[in-house]
Design a protein around this nucleic acid. Structure first.
Lengths: 143, 143
DNA sequence: AAAATAAAAGACAAAATTATCTTTTATTTA
DNA sequence: TAAATAAAAGATAATTTTGTCTTTTATTTT
């Protein structure tokens, strides 16, 4: 569904959001350990998200990644788009570039609905949406 | 969503189904040209599908790929499972192996529905479902 | 100012996916 | 039976994705 990169990205972002809610920054080591990802790999991904303003970072002691209030409001769709692009929301199920409403592939009409459901689901979920479930250990992010 | 291999597979199978309905077999050259795929790549994929009984093949002049009546009844879900496995129907959106109903990731409940919709859609579509649209050029498979 | 901390950046490597090319085997037609 | 046809099989290669390692830069604390 999503690339591994994107899976790690979402998990990391949700973890950072949770820590932000607890009032602390969190470093690469803690993140990679907590979401079960390769350390340098998630570092790269977060560098990119940070360039795009979807997370913030601070160097030096007591540094790490965090969200400000505004970035807690970004949606999971924003994260997915930043990492995987919009293909999953708009692309053809059969990979046909020419597929469109007026020139549809055989699956076009059926898949339209599904893709739209996925997008809506991700658009309406902000990064901050999930901190409570994580806080109470109702949900998890590693392994 | 699906791997490139899977996209080609579904396109090829739908094309073969259409030709079967016209009463003819179709060769790798015609298939690859008609669905816009690399020739030897789709050949490999069809070898595999043929081993699994999802398409049939005949060597020699007037040979090629075709469906029998029974294999026209296979669902797109069968094709997807044969190529990509069932991951898309059952896997965790965040790639967490331990994610389950009783131990859910933050997206689990929301994504359950979407994954199920995708599966239902593909389960209820037989290979033969789409020949008419293709026949009448209401839908297409290449580019 | 020095030491410690932590992200940023860049180079490199492994693995998986996608694609190509050549040879072999089976079948049919002439 | 010979020639032509077409899939099967196997080897190899390119590309993309995923993962690792090392060095540099910025910041904070002592």
């Amino acid at each position: 569904m999503f690339s591994k990169t994107c899976e790690y990205a979402v998990r990391a972002v949700l973890f950072i959001a949770q820590k932000t809610r607890e009032g602390r920054k969190t470093g690469i080591k803690e993140i990679s350990h907590s979401i079960g990802s390769p350390e340098h790999f998630i570092a790269k991904i977060l560098q990119e998200l940070s360039r795009k303003g979807l997370v913030f970072s601070a160097k030096g002691p007591n540094g790490g990644f965090y969200h400000d209030e505004k970035s807690l409001q970004y949606s999971l769709a924003d994260i997915v788009r930043a990492v995987d692009g919009g293909k999953i929301f708009t692309g053809c199920a059969l990979g046909l570039k020419a597929c469109s409403e007026i020139h549809p592939c055989p699956l076009h009409d059926e898949f339209k609905k599904v893709r739209n459901d996925i997008q809506l689901l991700l658009e309406r979920s902000t990064i901050g949406t999930f901190t409570e479930g994580l806080e109470q250990s109702l949900t998890f992010l590693n392994r």
